[in-house]
């Protein structure tokens, strides 16, 4: 009987020890899992937030690209408008319309001023050469 009682005691004490160990180890595993999951969650959240940030930046960049393209088109339109307005037939029409008493200067009334606007001093093409005509009356 004693033996039984002893053995029961032993079993009981073993059970208590096992339960303690299981709870401890289980908590450890859960804790580790929580850490791993938190890490994974963190990484995922980071990735999502980076993607979100990248998408927002993309959206902004796309908007800017569109704006630049729009401005380019406006510039192109203005350039052609300017070319049209600065053509001689158009200027002549305006002179007539506003009745401006303009006339060509006599040859000896003209002096040429050459404007060098290229600081690098590289060789200029004829298109780059600008000559200002000063007419004295």
């Amino acid at each position: 009987m004693n033996i039984q009682a002893r053995s029961i005691k032993l079993n009981k004490s073993r059970k208590k020890n096992n339960t303690r160990q299981t709870i401890g180890s289980k908590f450890g595993i859960v804790f580790r899992m929580i850490i791993v999951m938190a890490f994974v969650f963190g990484i995922a959240t980071l990735r999502i937030s980076i993607d979100q940030w990248a998408t927002a930046e993309d959206r902004e960049a796309d908007k800017l690209v569109k704006q630049i393209a729009q401005l380019d088109r406006e510039i192109e339109n203005c350039k052609l408008k300017k070319e049209k307005l600065s053509s001689w037939p158009n200027i002549k029409d305006r002179i007539q319309k506003f009745n401006l008493a303009l006339r060509m200067p006599e040859p000896f009334q003209v002096q040429n001023l050459t404007v060098n606007y290229d600081p690098a001093g590289k060789e200029k093409t004829s298109g780059e050469r600008k000559t200002a005509m000063l007419s004295q009356r």
């Binding site: 088109r73 406006e74 192109e76 339109n77 350039k79 052609l80 070319e83 600065s86 004829s126 298109g127 780059e128 050469r129």
Partner: peptide
Amino acid sequence: IFDIQGNLLVGNIP
């Protein structure tokens, strides 16, 4: 297409 001084003669209008 430009003239020798760079005046535009033919362009592309948007």
